[in-house]
Every structure is written in C-alpha cells, then in structure tokens.
Design a protein around this nucleic acid. Structure first.
Length: 307
DNA sequence: AAATCGGGCAACCGCGCGCAG
DNA sequence: CCTGCGCGCGGTTGCCCGATT
C-alpha cells in the first residue's frame, strides 16, 4: 500500500515554470507567506503540485538567493563540509548564505567532484585515490580501528603509521597538527569551561561508544561528542557518513548512528551561528595543508581551485 | 550547415520524519 | 498508540544549450 499522491497528477502541469507562473507564486507567497504548500496552487491560481511550488520557490524565487557563480571560498567550504557531513546538502547549504541545497548538490555533482578526481582525491571518501587502491589491497588484513587509532586518524593524507610502506602524498604531521588545532579551537569555542574537555587525549571516547548512547552523551558533554564526531569524520574511508548511510539503509539500529550525527550537526549549526565557528571553518580551509600538506598557509589559491 | 555529444541545471520522484488528530 | 498528512531531503531524470565533429 503506497502513499496516496499529494495531488491529482492528471490535472497538474509539469516541466519548466513560466514567468507568469513565477509571478503568481511570488505574489501569493509575498502576501500570504509560505505555509501549507498543498493549498498554495489552488489559492495562487496555479495548476501545479504543491510540492512543485515549494521547490520552485525555495530553489529559485526565494528572496536573497544568489544566482551568480560559486566563489572559490564557497567551493572550499563545500568540499570541507562534504568531507565532514557527506551528501547532506541541506546542512551544507545552511553554511552558504543564498545557496540552496539543490544548487550545492548540482555544483558538487557537475564540478567539484570532477575537480577532486582530477587532483587524485576520491570525492566520496576524500582520501587520495592511491590510498584507496592500497586500502582495497590490504582491506582483508586490516585490524579494526582502535580508540588509539581513531585519535591519530588519517584523513586525506594517509597516516604512515597506519599504512607503513605507502608513500604519503602530503605532510601528514603538519596536516594533523593543523586539523587537531582547529578541532580544539572549535571545541573550546563551544564550551571552554567544560570539565574534561576533549583537549585531554586520555578522555577521548570511541565514536562507537558515543553512538551507543548518543543522545545522553551529547547532552552531558557536547564538547566531547564534537571531538568524537570530528575524529570519526576525519577517520579514513569516509566512515563518518558511509556507515550511517548503511545503517539507515538496512534499517538496523533504530537510527542510532544517524541520530548521533544529526544531533551533533544540529547542535553544531546552532552553535556556529552564535559563536562564529564559520570563521574557524574558513581558517581551516585557508590552510593549504588541508589538501596539500606543507607550504605556507597564506593563500587559499594554493589549494589550486582556480583553474 | 547539420548532426551528435556532453555538461549544466531545473525539476521531479520517492522516502523518512515529525506532528496533529 | 496508530494513522494520515505535510514538509523537507537526497537521488535521479530530462531538457536545454554550447562545443565538437
């Protein structure tokens, strides 16, 4: 038994919107707001599905939308957030004023993923493709990640300790130093007075522990949860979102990992608005070590997005 | 000049979640 | 607690248009 259709599809227009339709929808929303989309078509005199109206409004007609090209700063922010959040386009778009999730998604699919591939970085895992090939070869004999392993996680540059013999593409030491430093800044910003802040390596819990009881853990010590999430997010292989997706897909776990991520993300989004975490993200992006370990951190152009 | 190809983008579809009754 | 409904999200599709042959 499927869900009934939201509208009479036989009598609904589909396809590109005309200027007249746009005008009607805009006039209606400016006068009545955007609640109850199912009734909007009838009230606005449109032969469209309410869902289509909502999409048209949010992706095109909504005030303050940017219609110009993405800037280099926006590109870099998308890449970083995608590495942390996966394909949660709405969350990523929240960090980009004037951009919609559809914009970000399309831009990623058509431009950014290709750019990453061209630079030898897998756009799904955000790890060097060479590293992935190596991982495939050694997957069967790799031990499961331990707490210690997680705390020294490798992300884009492979951690030599985790894969001895593999040539690191970047300056891993510098990269990890930068990343850890940025994480600590974020954590401190969120709750500088919290006892046992994640700054203490001995206190770091395993991400899997957090997942088992994420809601309570987050309320009790969000700064620790943040540290864990970031550790998990940067742990090699895109475990941060790949695992949650698989959990969600097979319906096992009652959304444990997913809710863990969501709880953290929601809190993060609330907090960053208040505390300027955006700037920290920008600082992280501004450091070339993020993708190309070593070198100075003077210019984002060193990331090589320009051409 | 015409045909074909490929990229980019707008829009659609189906699903999950939250909420109200 | 259950059910129906609306909303939002992510994945996918299909059209348009410029580039190439």
């Amino acid at each position: 038994m499927g869900r009934p259709p939201c509208c009479d599809k036989a009598n609904v227009k589909k396809g590109p919107w005309t200027a007249e339709e746009d005008a009607k929808l805009l006039a209606y929303t400016s006068n009545h707001g955007t609640g109850n989309w199912t009734s909007v078509p009838q009230r606005a005199g449109l032969k469209r599905c309410g869902k289509s109206c909502r999409l048209r409004y949010t992706n095109y007609l909504r005030p303050n939308l940017k219609h110009e090209n993405f800037t280099q700063e926006e590109e870099e922010l998308i890449v970083t957030l995608h590495a942390m959040l996966g394909s949660r386009w709405s969350l990523i778009a929240n960090q980009l004023p004037g951009r919609t999730d559809n914009d970000v998604k399309n831009y990623w699919n058509t431009k950014l993923s290709k750019k990453l591939r061209q630079r030898g970085i897998d756009p799904i895992t955000h790890r060097p493709i060479a590293d992935l090939m190596q991982s495939i070869g050694t997957l069967a004999i790799r031990p499961p990640p331990s707490a210690a392993g997680a705390s020294s996680s490798s992300y884009i540059p492979v951690n030599p300790a985790a894969a001895p013999g593999l040539q690191p593409l970047h300056d891993d030491v510098k990269y990890h130093a930068v990343l850890n430093h940025q994480q600590q800044q974020v954590i401190t910003l969120l709750d500088p007075d919290a006892p046992g802040a994640a700054a203490s390596p001995d206190h770091q819990l395993k991400w899997s522990d957090f997942l088992a009881d994420d809601a309570a853990a987050f309320e009790a010590a969000p700064q620790v949860v943040l540290g864990q999430y970031q550790e998990a997010a940067v742990a090699g292989g895109g475990a941060a979102y790949g695992d949650t997706d698989s959990i969600a897909a097979d319906g096992v776990g009652g959304g444990g990992e997913d809710s863990a991520a969501s709880a953290f993300i929601d809190a993060m989004l609330d907090s960053d608005k208040k505390m300027g975490v955006d700037q920290l993200i920008a600082d992280l992006l501004a450091d070339p070590a993020y993708y190309y370990g070593g070198g100075s951190s003077s210019s984002t152009s060193e990331l090589g997005w320009g051409g």
